[in-house]
């Protein structure tokens, strides 16, 4: 088992003929992802890496079973791509674009909620269930199949954590990037819930960062509902107030969003705290005995 993504998950790629879309589709296929169709307006009837391309998502879902859609489209088209996939009845939508306008994300997330669809992202590397499938850009060499669930706001930080775990011989069940914000589809709590329910996942690594109050909500959930051990790292401990660090959501405003407060609440909720990916891996190793 893994969460959200298994070897059977059938995938549709939006923006499949673009530079990034075609390259990443080939990489996903090579890894074993079951990519069944692609969409690029105006390119219907073509093929990319042996995958049929359609003009519209509705045309693709008429021909193929599609469980999940991932979009590699510029941020200005991200809203329309997501709405089209949701309207076509696809229930899991991954949005990789960075810098999607907040107004557009509100529209997408409201629409998804009404249609019972789940959105991951935006600004997400996607997710990987090592050894089974990947939906996004996670470098697979740093991951290995196993029983540690990893979730992170930052893509690159999750790669670092997986690298440290894998080097210690510890594999991962699923690695999920939820994105850089400032608005998120799936939140840390949503992903924690899935890991808690997943019989294969034994330990969870939660990688948070400065800005907002998402880690505070995660801590409440860990404290109240979780039985599995959680190891956490929060980056931006040395972040100066009022400066946005790379992610739209990574900013300390006044006293809100500070790393120290997040570490305090997570620690009080019972999460073990690591300061570097190496330390995180060490703690996970100890927890697994």
């Amino acid at each position: 088992m893994s969460i959200l993504l298994s070897g059977e998950t059938s995938v549709l790629v939006q923006g499949i003929t673009g530079n990034i879309g075609s390259f990443q589709t080939a990489v996903m296929q090579e890894y074993g992802t079951n990519v069944v169709a692609g969409v690029t307006p105006g390119k219907g009837g073509e093929e990319t890496s042996g995958i049929p391309v359609y003009d519209f998502v509705s045309e693709a879902v008429g021909r193929h079973e599609v469980d999940a859609a991932i979009s590699y489209v510029p941020s200005k088209f991200a809203r329309d791509a997501a709405l089209e996939a949701i309207d076509a009845g696809i229930k899991f939508i991954v949005m990789t674009a960075e810098g999607v306008p907040v107004r557009d994300m509100m529209a997408v997330l409201n629409h998804a909620e009404g249609r019972g669809a789940t959105v991951l992202g935006p600004d997400t590397p996607g997710l990987i269930s090592p050894g089974k499938s990947k939906l996004g850009v996670h470098p697979d060499r740093m991951t290995a199949e196993g029983d540690v669930g990893v979730l992170s706001r930052s893509g690159a930080l999750s790669y670092e954590i997986c690298k440290s775990l894998t080097e210690k011989g510890i594999g991962q069940s699923t690695v999920v990037g939820i994105g850089g914000g400032p608005l998120w589809g799936m939140t840390q709590v949503d992903v924690l819930k899935l890991f808690e329910e997943d019989p294969e996942t034994k330990v969870i690594v939660l990688a948070g960062e400065v800005g907002g109050s998402m880690e505070q909500k995660a801590a409440e959930y860990i404290d109240g509902e979780m039985t599995k051990p959680v190891v956490s790292i929060v980056v931006g401990r040395s972040a100066p107030a009022g400066k946005r660090l790379g992610h739209a959501g990574a900013i300390v405003e006044g006293n809100a969003g500070r790393a120290a407060d997040k570490i305090d609440v997570l620690s009080s909720a019972g999460a073990k705290i690591g300061r570097s990916p190496g330390e995180v891996a060490k703690i996970v190793d100890q927890l697994r005995g």
């Binding site: 790292i233 980056v235 931006g236 401990r237 660090l245 300061r275």
Partner: peptide
């Protein structure tokens, strides 16, 4: 080459 790892680097 990433926001999270950039922050991590500052912290370390």
């Amino acid at each position: 080459d990433g926001a999270g790892t950039g922050m991590l680097t500052l912290d370390v």
